[in-house]
Design a binder for these strands. Structure first.
Lengths: 213, 213
DNA sequence: CAATGTGAAACAGTTCACAGCA
DNA sequence: TGCTGTGAACTGTTTCACATTG
């Protein structure tokens, strides 16, 4: 039992931080060195109060009458989000999705280098995909240990997702990003986030339904 | 004006409906024709009360002592989510992401056939990608009208996202699914949902940070 | 008696209003 | 004066407790 004194920053806040960060990056790129909660808020589409509450809840403060320091704010938020130390990821599933992901360069310049692309299918194992040789699933633990991967990405079909999750957990990753349809169950020491296209489409479907009166 | 008291189903509920739907599909596949809120809840990882509140808020009811009818529940939820009439989608951006999406078959069997894949780059226009010839951006309105697309998918780089959104809105789509980093602004008649890999990774970053005490 | 359906409590998140500071 | 920082009101969501019913 960890007697954690929790910093207690709300999930809602955390989910907005990356958004702020991108807004700030834009500002920094245009050499603006100070920003008001108002301006940042309109940039990213939230309410100014919300920005202030979020930042203040993290202990970040601006200057009254002026605003926040763009660069220091970026650093502070980056720190909270764990930027800085690159955390390598491993992708399980070298199908369409896995391949697409491995080409996505947001991984590398976001500080999440791809350690390996793994699959079970002998037909794809050994093939080179965007500079990575596809590795067999049974090398997973070795890969994870060696590269110190902390994030596993599930890019398998739905049927294989739970198995992939189990293997990844066993291999020692601490977070999962699940692109497969359906739900995976994991010990509660690992965090799972899910990205699901079908769900998104369904939700849009609902809105359209409503819109037609 | 319809004097209809609006169904008023909460966003939180809507976001869970697709999940229930998939759970129910699994049950149907294993020929189970009745399900308790408890069972469904554990399957999809929510609390039983939540399932009941959700369903009852939509006016769907089960049988006390027994549970809910799997197939009828599927139909009812499907109806709410606008399944049934296929709503064609158009994808803007034929880069890595656009290509990956066009190969994703969840579109077709989810009732969202891909009407077209559109790009600005003359180098890719005309190329065939998973059975679709890439069309030039200026054909967008024509495509949308002709196929009655109601959903537009933005799969461009960040810099082009706002332009893509504008064009899509002008062409007449009613919902956007935005895969590009950053924020797009649209008239509030169109619904936007955002899927952002970088954000997800950032959030995982936060959790890892915390986990290290 | 095993399950639903629901009012009411608890909790989380957002927004307001305004005090206080550079 | 312009903007931050925050208590307090409010809105939305989850959870609990339990009466109800097939």
């Amino acid at each position: 039992m960890t007697p954690q004194p929790p910093p207690a920053v709300s999930a809602a806040t955390v989910s907005r931080l990356p958004v702020y960060l991108r807004g700030l990056a834009d500002l920094a790129a245009s050499d603006q060195n100070t920003v008001s909660s108002q301006q940042l808020a309109t940039m990213v589409g939230v309410k100014a109060t919300n920005v202030r509450k979020d930042l203040s809840s993290l202990g970040f403060s601006g200057t009254r009458g002026v605003g926040y320091q763009v660069t220091t704010l970026m650093q502070q938020i980056g720190l909270v989000l764990g930027d800085g130390q690159p955390t390598p990821v491993v992708i399980v599933g070298a199908g369409n999705l896995g391949r697409a992901l491995s080409r996505y360069d947001g991984f590398n310049n976001g500080g999440f280098p791809i350690a390996a692309l793994v699959d079970v299918d002998p037909k794809v194992i050994g093939k080179k995909i965007s500079g990575l040789k596809v590795k067999p699933l049974n090398k997973l633990t070795q890969i994870v240990t060696q590269h110190q991967c902390t994030v596993g990405i599930i890019a398998t079909p739905a049927a294989a997702a739970q198995e992939a999750a189990d293997q990844l957990v066993k291999a020692g990753v601490r977070s999962l990003l699940n692109f497969a349809p359906g739900v995976v169950t994991v010990p509660n020491t690992v965090t799972v986030r899910k990205v699901d296209l079908a769900t998104e489409l369904h939700i849009l479907g609902y809105h359209q339904q409503r819109q037609n009166k």
